[in-house]
Amino acid sequence: MQNSKKILLLAACIWSYCAYAQQGGFTSQPVKRGDYSFVVYVSGGLGHYPAYSKDLAYLDPKIQNVNPVSTIRIMWHPDHLVKVGLETGYLTFLNYTLTDSAGQRGKVLLNATPLLVEWTMALTKRFNVFAGSGVYFLTTNLDYKGKTRSKKISVGWMAAASYIQPVTKNMGIGAELKWLDAAESRDGTICLQLQWVWRFLKW
């Protein structure tokens, strides 16, 4: 239940935040019936992937706990609540250096490019939730007694919540809390990103 407590605490914080959301400007909610648009979300930030030193103790690891996560998403905003789109990007799940029993050092990087179909819904004018599923193209980059690059495709998921502050009628900036998980990476990364949102096509 430890996780549940954390989630509830998070829920309370975000709920409070949402309650103060202001009106006007950019919104992901339908502008009016019949409006259709494409919206691009460009996001960059940092993610945390749960990797514990004790699990890798035999490698004497130095784990980089926070790693960059950059994503781009295009959503189709029709005149109803639920919107659909695609997201891709580049992220690092796991990043650590190791030292073997002979003192030789090495480095492991597990990177991923997700390709996810996503659904989103505006909860308020500024606050949106996302959920999606698809594949992750995973790449291990190992530098220990030679360099090895190894790839694997994995099924995966995502969930996110974002808050967008309007800048112009078709543009906004925001922040997004996101969970990205590939089945083969064992655990997901939870990341916080800054976001630039642009409604680049409307008809």
Binding site: V129, A131, W157, A159, G188
Partner: peptide, 9 residues
């Protein structure tokens, strides 16, 4: 964790 996050949303 993922499920909990989705539920939270």
């Amino acid at each position: 964790k993922g499920i909990q996050l989705v539920l939270f949303f």
